[in-house]
Computed example of a mutant assay.
Amino acid sequence: MSSDGADEILDKKLAGVCDLEQVRSLARIAHRCLHKTPRKRPTIGEVSRAITKLNQKHLVRVESRTTMSYGSEEFSGVVSCIEVQENHNLE
């Protein structure tokens, strides 16, 4: 179990299907978004940058194996949606 409790909310079926460390990282980002004090919550820009950073780390690992999985394509799609939302909020 992770010290931040992320493992408690994860579906056990994810084990072996995806990178659990990446899922834990996403759960930590989501947890920050739920802070009781609104000004302590990250902005959508901060969330987008954190997810983009995770995606870049993931892509480096994928490229080093020279294969692309469905999961990384789905992850990229989620990041793209967040970036579109961030751009919309800036207008």
Results as ranks from 00 to 15, higher is better:
Thr37Pro: 00
Asn87Met: 04
Ile44Phe: 01
Leu10Thr: 03
Thr37Arg: 06
Val62Gly: 04
Arg49Thr: 07
Ala15His: 09
Lys12Ser: 12
Glu63Asn: 13
Lys13Thr: 15
Gln56Met: 11
Asp19Arg: 03
Asp11Glu: 12
Ala50His: 00
Glu63Ser: 13
Lys40Arg: 13
Gly71Glu: 10
Arg28Val: 04
Leu14His: 02
His31Glu: 13
Cys81Gln: 05
Ser72Ile: 15
Val60Met: 14
Met1Ile: 15
Gln56Trp: 15
Ile44Pro: 01
Arg65Thr: 10
Glu21Phe: 02
Thr67Met: 10
Ser2Val: 03
Gly45Pro: 01
Leu59Gln: 12
His58Val: 03
Gln85Lys: 05
Cys33Glu: 00
Ala30Leu: 12
Arg28Asp: 04
Val17Asp: 09
Glu74Gln: 10
Ser69Phe: 14
Lys12Asn: 06
Glu86Tyr: 05
Asp19Ile: 04
Ser25Pro: 01
Thr37Ser: 09
Glu21Asp: 11
Ser80Gln: 11
Ser72Gly: 01
Met68Thr: 15
His35Asn: 10
Tyr70Arg: 15
Asp11Pro: 01
Gly77Trp: 05
His58Tyr: 10
Gly45Met: 08
Ser64Gly: 14
Ala27Thr: 06
Gln85Met: 09
Thr37Tyr: 04
Ser3Asp: 13
Gly45Leu: 08
Lys36Tyr: 07
Ile44Ser: 02
Glu8Val: 10
Arg41Gly: 00
Glu86Asp: 11
Leu14Ala: 03
Glu8Arg: 15
Ser3Asn: 15
Ser76Lys: 02
Arg28Thr: 03
Ile29Trp: 04
Ser72Gln: 06
Gly16Asp: 08
His31Thr: 14
Glu86Met: 07
Thr66Ile: 14
Arg24Val: 03
Ala15Lys: 09
Glu21His: 11
Lys36Glu: 12
Gln22Lys: 09
Glu63Thr: 11
His58Ile: 09
Thr52Lys: 00
Thr43Glu: 08
Leu90Tyr: 00
Asn87Ser: 11
Asp7Glu: 12
Ile82Arg: 00
Pro38Asn: 10
Cys81Glu: 06
Lys57Thr: 07
Gly71Phe: 07
Arg24His: 02
Leu26Val: 12
Gly71Lys: 01
Cys81Asn: 13
Leu14Lys: 08
Arg61Cys: 07
Glu21Cys: 05
Asn87Asp: 05
Leu14Asn: 08
Ser25Phe: 02
Met68His: 13
Leu59Thr: 00
Lys53Asn: 09
Arg41Trp: 01
Lys36Asp: 11
Gln22Pro: 01
His58Glu: 08
Lys13Pro: 04
Gly77Pro: 03
Val47Pro: 00
Lys13Ala: 15
Met1His: 15
Ser48Glu: 02
Leu26Asp: 00
Arg65Trp: 10
Arg61Asp: 08
Leu90Asn: 07
Val17Gln: 05
Glu46Cys: 06
Ser76Cys: 12
Asp4Ser: 07
Ala30Glu: 10
